[in-house]
């Protein structure tokens, strides 16, 4: 049974009496221990999707189930790592306290040990008493990852977590997440706009269409584990996966126009009463 199921998830924003559909009837499921990446053109609603899945936003339609239970507010089985580490860590708390804060309301034993082990797992065992702003961007994002790990989630959601760090750090953090994943056996849903990153890290890649976003293509990445920045990326299979994802994103607008034409000629689009902006092609 999948640990995470998303069924018919939709999100429409309303402003000035007009609605903008960010996500339309998305369905997917994530198996336990799976690493699923979600890629798509920028502005396609990836972050909205992640917020709906994590219970931070209430979807307009459909639902998310975690281990069979519907998500209505942020569930304790999920942790989120955000893109902007500087705004997701608490600047007035030390690294250690940042990691410990979400545990305060949890009844787990050995919280200190959990915090220490999480920090060690991300290579920050030596700076627990520093403040986040004393650390580099990459290290701050490690703190955010440690905080998520300490929370001991079933599913770890990551929203473009490496978009604001330099390329070198990015590669290091990718490998860190992979090693943490094999060590802790956590299920990961990883949102990114970087195709290489998605292919390199994932078991499965979901390609989203331009908004209102739908799943345009699902790709199972059958590359050997453990992955390696040099050898994995040198494999011909890596290049071909990469090309397929890239092509899928490129074809997105055209495919969507086709689909729209078919939808329009047969029925309405199944969401009566929901006004919709025509998508601006990007």
């Amino acid at each position: 049974m999948p640990v995470l199921e998303v069924e018919g998830l939709s999100k429409t924003y309303y402003s000035d009496g007009r609605g903008t559909t960010a996500i339309r009837r998305l369905d997917f499921a994530v198996e336990e221990h799976e690493f699923v990446s979600i890629v798509g053109p920028s502005g396609c609603g990836k972050t909205t999707l992640l917020k709906c899945v994590s219970g931070l936003l209430t979807p307009s339609g459909g639902r998310t189930m975690i281990r069979g239970a519907e998500v209505t507010s942020p569930p304790p089985e999920m942790a989120v790592v955000f893109q902007d580490y500087s705004r997701s860590l608490f600047p007035w708390l030390t690294v250690r306290k940042n990691v410990a804060l979400p545990l305060r309301r949890r009844s787990i034993s050995g919280k200190d040990r959990v915090v220490r082990e999480s920090l060690e797992a991300v290579g920050l065992g030596k700076v627990p008493d520093h403040y986040p702003w004393q650390l580099s961007g990459g290290m701050q994002q490690r703190v955010a990852i440690a905080r998520a790990l300490a929370y001991q989630p079933k599913v770890l959601l990551m929203d473009e977590p490496f978009a604001s760090v330099d390329a070198q750090t990015r590669a290091e953090l990718e490998d860190l997440v992979l090693s943490v994943r094999s060590e802790f056996g956590v299920t990961i849903v990883f949102v990114t706009h970087d195709i290489d990153e998605a292919v390199y890290m994932s078991d499965r890649v979901l390609v989203l269409s331009p908004p209102p976003c739908e799943i345009q293509e699902t790709l199972v990445i059958d590359l050997p584990l453990p992955r390696d920045q040099i050898t994995t990326k040198a494999e011909p299979a890596f290049a071909s996966y990469r090309a397929r994802v890239y092509r899928a994103i490129q074809e997105g607008p055209a495919l969507q126009a086709q689909r729209r034409a078919i939808d329009g000629s047969t029925t309405g689009d199944g969401a009566p009463g929901q006004p919709e902006l025509s998508p601006t092609s990007r």
């Binding site: 942020p74 304790p76 860590l89 305060r104």
Partner: peptide
């Protein structure tokens, strides 16, 4: 964003106020 990050970790209402909003 900070509020959202805190909510993602299950803080809300009074706990959100005392641990995040007040110190901020």
């Amino acid at each position: 964003e900070l509020i959202e990050a805190s909510r993602a970790f299950g803080l809300h209402g009074m706990s959100l106020f005392t641990t995040v909003q007040l110190p901020a």
